[in-house]
Design a protein around this nucleic acid. Structure first.
Length: 849
RNA sequence: GGGCGAGUAGCUCAGUUGGUUAGAGCGUACGAUUCACAUUCGUAAGGUCAUAGGUUCGACUCCUAUCUCGCCCACCA
């Protein structure tokens, strides 16, 4: 049992063993907890992409989730953290496409079935890697309830959800303008499009008026789309163009006659105030087109080349067509001017390819009816968002929400459970192939080829993983979940959708609290990027510095919703802290264990540290309850290093009341366990705790003990610290050799206390205190006593500075107190406190002079 | 265009509901070290709390404006 402990903590040697021990214990599973309370605590882990690597964002979230999970488990709540992975439609498919490309094949040449086989192989190979990494971070989630978004059970839930929405008329199919990524070859939702500032050109093109020599100049960033123009729009208030509204334009090159329409959406200030309208390839134009019943002509295809509608440009790439059309227009003297122009270009969120808006047949979810209850759930306080300011962001998005395009032209994902009758084309929503068409009794069916947006299945995550649509025990026990912990970047993508879908299907909120963490930035405040090499691999860091150190560095010094910087020095700092803890434990273990369990505060230091510990219990508990993990962790850090190790332990070496030493450490380990589970569990086991049910992970969370708070001890110990620090200061200033003990003579009100703790002072400051009056002029004032030191070098202590500081302090206080407004209007206790301060300062000054 | 966040020591950040002589870690300087720990210990230097107004007896904290940086949303082609 008492094997020799290594001088420096070696996390690598013990972490995997401890994790295995936890897993074997079964305590991650709420059904196997020793004696859970009725109250449940549930966290649904945001499922990482199955083929991905864990990055620092995951690590941060997982750590915070685990802190809450372990805390609630120790409190005795029936605690469940449910893990899983996401199939991540596009990203996974892209990876496998890249892989097979290296073999010289593509997905079309393989065919759907064969391609999917390859993706599953890939998933099998890499899927377990992410769960290994989650284990490496020490996450205490219930692996027996692990799920994957494409598990049969979850697929059934997806089908159920889709079919229900379809039958309710909330899901519909339609030809509408969508964001098309030519590289991914699929439609995307608005959220999967990002806007990137791009420098380009703004071309001013002359559109001749029909039956006239005049022309109207339009400004565009995309001249090639003119082939699909079906109108020119101007603002109805624009006097410059009022006379032309209703007249016709002869569209250059194609020679099509198109109308000039008036539409309030046109900005008179921009360009020439006249806009070419291309309903098939611009979302804004599409809206104008609808209102004015303009035709939409598809001139660009899904493969980013020009369609047959583009006439002579058929087959050309968009880029080539643009070039050719520009040359042609220039030849015809239709280009008025070209100016440099910086605009926000829509790009694919995943691959940065410019988005091509085009009209295509897609499946949409009517979102407004779902958004309404989702808004009131937050408004009414059924759901709390931390930090609160994100509520505003949430409302803004929810109030301006558009129908959600849920179909993707991908193979990897949930194939949409819709079957088309081959006879009449009537669609029917069903998991399995229908027996007969309801409309025409036809018997031949073909399933919809498109798959669902990944976020559709993730939107069901909190309840599909608990068994829905079946009425399971788990669903009853653990849903709604307690906290949704995730990055703020997923608020719309995922969190909002879970709220809507959960309310719709379970009539319950999916979670009561949304805790949003910030993004991890590098040392210079930039987003970490693999390609730039500024990223830090959390797994490499756990191997180098230990998981506990990583966990601290991800949580301490951060605030919810705020991005924060991480760099290796910070991690190293927390590694040092863990090592400090290790050595505190080593020292404690090296001392004989107390014979009795009864704890007795025998000395001032005992009473003080027990009071401090009591305060710590209260602070840590309160801060975790209030989601202030950084503050809780910082309090633990400061207590262990600066109160316990720097002061108490040093004193304990002389007072030898090791029962208190051991007991304080024991309680501290419990408090710190949610933050740094590995090292605390390891030390715990060395403190002669054996047997499964004695593991730290299931120890009861400490309660503050009101009896132990002792204000006198707090004050007296503070005075002692003040005296010791002041004495050390003088010693250092006077370059007194550290090993020599020097004699000091004290006099004053605090004399009794100082003398009583003579031994401690001698040990901590190497000063031998007496009450005899000394002759040396070297003195200082601290803790209510004047102290003369017999320095070997005998020179006077520089009192000028001490005097100066205190004098200006007194002056400030006097001014404050002579101000009648203050003494009359401020609360009495505040005024009294200031008077007290003044009296103390004046006394101090008197002693110095 | 709308919205949000940040600006406190050389660097990274704390600072609860207004009352502290404004704190920590890293870094720096000086010193120590058989006795748990050099991944250590001690001491110190270093701040007009972005700027300008206002509210208040009292502002790092509340209000207004401005500046700098970062981010989100948005159909100015």
């Amino acid at each position: 049992m008492t094997t020799e402990l290594h001088k420096a903590y070696q996390p690598k040697d013990i972490e995997s063993g401890i994790y295995a021990k936890w897993e074997r214990s079964g305590f991650f599973n709420p059904d196997k907890m020793p004696s859970p309370r009725k109250k449940s605590f549930t966290i649904s882990m945001p499922p990482p992409n199955v083929t991905g690597e864990l990055h620092l964002g995951h690590a941060t979230g997982l750590t915070i989730q685990d802190i809450m999970t372990r805390y609630h488990r120790m409190k005795g709540d029936r605690t469940l953290c449910l893990p899983g992975t996401d199939h991540a439609g596009i990203s996974t498919q892209v990876m496998v496409e890249r892989l097979i490309a290296s073999e010289g094949v593509n997905r079309d040449s393989l065919g759907r079935a064969e391609f999917l086989k390859r993706v599953w192989q890939w998933k099998k190979k890499y899927g377990s890697r992410i769960t290994t990494q989650v284990r490496q971070l020490g996450i205490s989630c219930d692996w027996s309830r692990e799920h994957f978004t494409m598990d049969p059970a979850l697929t059934a839930a997806v089908h159920k959800a889709f079919i229900t929405l379809f039958n309710e008329g909330l899901i519909y199919r339609g030809s509408r303008i969508v964001n098309w990524c030519p590289r991914c070859a699929t439609a995307l939702s608005d959220l999967e499009v990002k806007h990137v500032e791009t420098s380009g050109k703004l071309w001013f093109i002359r559109y001749p008026l029909s039956g006239s020599t005049k022309y109207i100049v339009v400004a565009t960033t995309r001249p090639e789309t003119m082939l699909g123009d079906t109108a020119v729009a101007v603002n109805p208030k624009d006097k410059r163009y009022a006379q032309y509204v209703g007249k016709k334009i002869i569209l250059p090159i194609v020679n099509r006659e198109i109308p000039i329409v008036a539409d309030a959406r046109v900005d008179m200030e921009f360009g020439t105030g006249a806009v070419k309208v291309t309903p098939a390839h611009d979302a804004a134009d599409y809206a104008i087109g609808l209102d004015h019943r303009l035709p939409a002509i598809n001139i660009i295809g899904q493969d980013n080349t020009m369609t047959k509608e583009a006439g002579e440009y058929y087959g050309k790439s968009v880029q080539d067509a643009r070039h050719d059309i520009f040359i042609r227009l220039e030849d015809e003297e239709l280009v008025e001017k070209t100016v440099d122009y910086i605009h926000q270009q829509a790009r694919c969120d995943r691959c940065s390819t410019p988005i091509e808006p085009l009209i295509s047949k897609q499946w949409f979810l009517k979102i407004a009816p779902l958004a309404k209850p989702a808004i009131s759930a937050v408004k009414s306080g059924k759901i709390n968002i931390i930090p609160k300011r994100f509520e505003k962001v949430y409302f803004h998005w929810m109030n301006n929400i558009h129908d959600w395009c849920i179909s993707r032209q991908l193979w990897w994902g949930h194939q949409i459970p819709v079957w088309y009758c081959q006879k009449c084309q009537e669609p029917a929503a069903s998991s399995d192939k229908p027996k007969a068409c309801k409309k025409c009794r036809g018997k031949q069916f073909k399933q919809e080829e498109d798959t669902l947006d990944t976020w559709f299945s993730s939107g069901l995550w909190t309840f599909s993983t608990l068994g829905w649509p079946k009425k399971t025990k788990d669903l009853k026990l653990f849903h709604p979940t307690s906290v949704m912990e995730t990055g703020w970047d997923l608020l719309f993508f995922w969190v909002a959708r879970m709220v809507m879908l959960s309310l719709h299907f379970t009539h319950k909120v999916p979670f009561k609290t949304i805790y949003l963490h910030g993004m991890v930035l590098d040392k210079h405040g930039k987003k970490m990027s693999k390609s730039k090499g500024t990223g830090i691999d959390p797994i490499l860091m756990t191997e180098k510095y230990g998981t506990d150190a990583i966990r601290l560095s991800l949580v301490l010094g951060t605030a919810p919703g705020l991005d924060y910087r991480l760099y290796e020095e910070k991690i190293a700092g927390y590694r040092n802290f863990i090592n400090k803890l290790w050595n505190v434990a080593r020292f404690t273990l090296s001392q004989p264990a107390p014979k009795t369990k009864k704890l007795e505060a025998k000395t001032l230091a005992d009473t003080w540290i027990m009071g401090r510990l009591n305060q710590l219990v209260a602070d840590v508990t309160k801060n975790i309850d209030n989601f202030k993990f950084s503050e809780a962790g910082t309090a633990l850090y400061d207590f262990l290093w600066h109160d316990f190790a720097d002061w108490y332990l040093e004193i304990a070496k002389h007072e030898k009341n090791y029962g208190v030493l051991r007991s304080v450490l024991t309680t501290w380990l419990k408090l710190a366990h949610p933050f740094i589970p590995f090292v605390t569990e390891e030390i715990w086991s060395r403190l002669a705790h054996t047997g499964k049910n004695n593991m730290l992970i299931v120890q009861a969370w400490p309660h503050p003990d009101k009896k132990t708070s002792n204000n006198t001890a707090k004050k007296e110990f503070a005075m002692l610290q003040e005296f010791v620090t002041a004495a050390r200061n003088i010693r250092t200033q006077k370059k007194e050799p550290a090993s020599d003990t020097i004699t000091a003579h004290i006099q004053g009100k605090g004399e009794k206390l100082i003398l009583k703790n003579k031994k401690i002072i001698s040990q901590l400051a190497k000063i031998d205190v007496t009450t005899k009056n000394g002759s040396q002029m070297t003195h200082f004032h601290a803790a209510g006593v004047n102290c003369w030191l017999e320095l070997s070098r005998g020179s006077a202590v520089d009192l000028e500075r001490q005097t100066r500081d205190i004098s200006s302090y007194i002056q400030r206080l006097e001014e404050k107190l002579s101000n009648k407004n203050f003494t009359e209007r401020a609360p009495k206790d505040v005024v009294d406190r200031e008077r007290q301060k003044l009296a103390e300062a004046q006394e101090k000054l008197k002693k110095l002079l």
